[in-house]
Design a protein around this nucleic acid. Structure first.
Length: 293
DNA sequence: GCGTCCAGGTCTACC
DNA sequence: GGTAGACCTGGACGC
């Protein structure tokens, strides 16, 4: 039985920088250690969910298969998507190489934002980040996984499928998931996904203008400007800043003497980065996450 | 322990 | 297009 597989990574890839790139690795079914040297997730194989562990091994990812996995090709594809292995950041690194605030980015190989195995999971998690504390986001996502996720052989749980989420009522989201007013949004989104209203899993490669894709993303109830721009970042499109209260507060602190200002001023500040501005602000605001310990 | 206030994005109605 | 208020939860705070 095959116990592990290896996947080549680009030269400018950093495992740790990708795992710790934003909050996703802190949300189940992802599991990681504090150092960000291991990432575990649950893969839906044809026989059911399987827990997978990924570690970095030089120029490769080493994928440990605790259980037999049948669909190896699809597993590799999902891991490639999660770690953004197909994305090219060369242009961004070239642009920031001599930038007084972002010259460190290329050196530390920062800029790949960890994605969930599916776009569906990214959308659900994004809805759970809106208008609440990170603690509540974690609670909602944990509840979804605990109460609707299929169990693996080792007792872990997968992220719920669109079908399992579509099968429960709004009240379930309200009472069991503690999703509050987001309950009808989660329920409606899952039902639309099952009904095939939109093909969200094609979004990573779809050949349409970003503005048009943003419009399609915003057709999901519960996703506004912040949510759509966050999802666009996870699709490798960085035209939007995805401003939320945390990002604004960080900007005020770093660039505006701690004083609040209009979003337009923040937009002007990052305009010079063009189509990379969303990534530029994110790297600028998270620099200390990647400081040498 | 209880009540009140507040922060956090999005939606809808209204202007 | 812009704005106000409602939505809901959990944490902080005062009593």
């Amino acid at each position: 039985m095959q116990r592990s597989i290896h996947i080549k990574v680009p030269q400018d890839f950093s495992f740790r920088a990708t795992v710790l790139s934003h909050g996703w690795s802190d949300l189940p079914p992802f599991e990681t250690d504090q150092a960000g040297s291991t990432l575990r997730f649950v893969f839906y194989d044809v026989d059911g969910p399987v827990k997978i562990e990924v570690i970095s091994s030089g120029s490769e990812l080493c994928v440990d298969l605790a259980d037999k996995v049948i669909e190896i090709a699809r597993l590799k594809k999902e891991i490639g998507r999660m770690f953004c292995l197909e994305d090219s950041l060369g242009e961004f690194y070239e642009m920031t190489r001599n930038d007084p605030r972002l010259s460190w980015v290329a050196e530390k190989k920062v800029g790949r934002l960890l994605r969930s195995p599916t776009v569906f999971e990214d959308v659900v998690k994004t809805i759970c980040t809106t208008n609440c504390s990170w603690g509540l986001t974690k609670k909602m996502v944990s509840n979804l996984v605990e109460k609707l996720g299929q169990e693996t052989k080792d007792g872990s749980r997968a992220f719920p499928t669109p079908e399992s989420m579509a099968a429960v009522s709004e009240d379930f989201y309200r009472e069991e998931i503690r999703a509050g007013y987001r309950s009808p949004y989660l329920s409606a989104f899952a039902r639309r996904a099952v009904a095939g209203d939109f093909e969200i899993e094609t979004w990573p490669t779809i050949q349409i203008e970003t503005a048009q894709l943003k419009k399609e993303i915003k057709s999901i109830k519960g996703i506004g400007d912040y949510g759509a721009e966050t999802l666009l970042k996870l699709l490798g499109r960085f035209d939007g800043l995805a401003l939320d209260s945390w990002l604004r507060a960080q900007y005020y602190k770093r660039h505006n003497l701690g004083r609040a200002c209009d979003d337009k001023k923040i937009e002007r500040h990052y305009r010079k980065y063009g189509k990379w501005r969303g990534l530029a602000i994110w790297c600028d605001m998270t620099e200390e996450w990647f400081a040498e310990k």
